[in-house]
């Protein structure tokens, strides 16, 4: 489904800043992948680069989605192919209600003509599942939302668009136990055998209750080790010392 080959990136505003340094990754339908790594290792850059955020420039390598090279595609075209990112810090848009936002983006992302009644019903059901108050629909997008509500709003969008690949960029950070549970519930509602999930996280809390297939450790822009859930547990116990040490010696 997603295949990243030998990817190198630099920052748009500082060309000397190398972020990803020869990253390889393959995700197949039905899989749940987890990327862990210390601060500044390039985790968020990876998700942003997949969506071609102009803040990052790919200098080498490429990204394929369902056999198509998407490295230089426009962000909205990539989104239309079915890749969704839950943002670490979702934007606020004063002046546009959540309902308006969901309706206009659903239409452009799926290209389908869906009746307003049907869509409203769908949104309303999803909000129930995520314990979201429906009054939020008439509030300006993310304005005055708490950190947890903003993240739930990301998951609501995920359920509304029903994409093929979901990237969760630190969706769990700053959330309390209940909110994390809701996010996990959302992921489980979404997950099936034909779609895939990439979770970027600091902690293993969000992984409880999920069926994780692969865990990757990202250090200095490169995947230094891959394994199963036991790797995540190892890092939870021991941190990244082992990898940083190796790198310092190099």
């Amino acid at each position: 489904m997603l295949k990243i080959n030998n990817l190198y990136t630099i920052a748009e505003d500082d060309h000397d800043k190398k972020i990803l340094n020869g990253l390889d990754l393959e995700i197949n339908p039905g899989e749940v992948h987890v990327i862990m790594g210390p601060n500044g290792s390039g985790k968020s850059t990876l998700a942003n680069t997949i969506l071609n955020n102009p803040r990052y420039i790919v200098t080498e390598g490429n990204i394929e989605f369902e056999g198509q090279d998407i490295t230089n595609m426009r962000t909205n075209e990539i989104a239309k192919l079915g890749i969704f990112m839950s943002f670490q810090t979702p934007e606020e848009i004063p002046g546009i209600t959540l309902a308006h936002f969901l309706k206009s983006t659903k239409k452009s992302i799926t290209g389908e003509k869906q009746s307003i009644v049907e869509l409203s019903k769908e949104i309303s059901e999803n909000m129930n599942k995520l314990d979201m108050n429906k009054s939020y629909l008439n509030r300006d997008f993310n304005v005055g939302f708490s950190g947890g509500e903003k993240k739930k709003n990301e998951i609501l969008q995920m359920l509304t668009y029903n994409p093929k690949l979901v990237m969760l960029d630190e969706t769990d950070s700053g959330l309390d136990v209940d909110a994390i549970k809701t996010v996990v519930k959302g992921i489980n509602l979404y997950k099936n055998d034909s779609n895939a999930v990439l979770i970027i996280t600091h902690s293993t809390k969000i992984l409880d209750g999920l069926n994780v297939d692969k865990v990757h450790v990202l250090v200095n822009g490169k995947i230094v080790e891959s394994g199963d859930m036991s790797l995540a547990n190892y890092i939870d116990q021991n941190g990244y010392k082992k990898y940083l040490g190796e790198n310092h010696e190099n």
Binding site: R74, K80, F87, E91, I93, G95, I96, S108
Partner: peptide, 28 residues
């Protein structure tokens, strides 16, 4: 630009995203 990126990641074209943000400012 971050706002533009966010909207484009939700499937809106650059022009649509700009228009949405302009209209949001007007609506306020």
């Amino acid at each position: 630009e971050e706002k533009l990126f966010y909207l484009m990641s939700r499937g809106l074209s650059k022009d649509e995203s700009i228009r949405l943000i302009l209209n949001a400012n007007i609506n306020k």
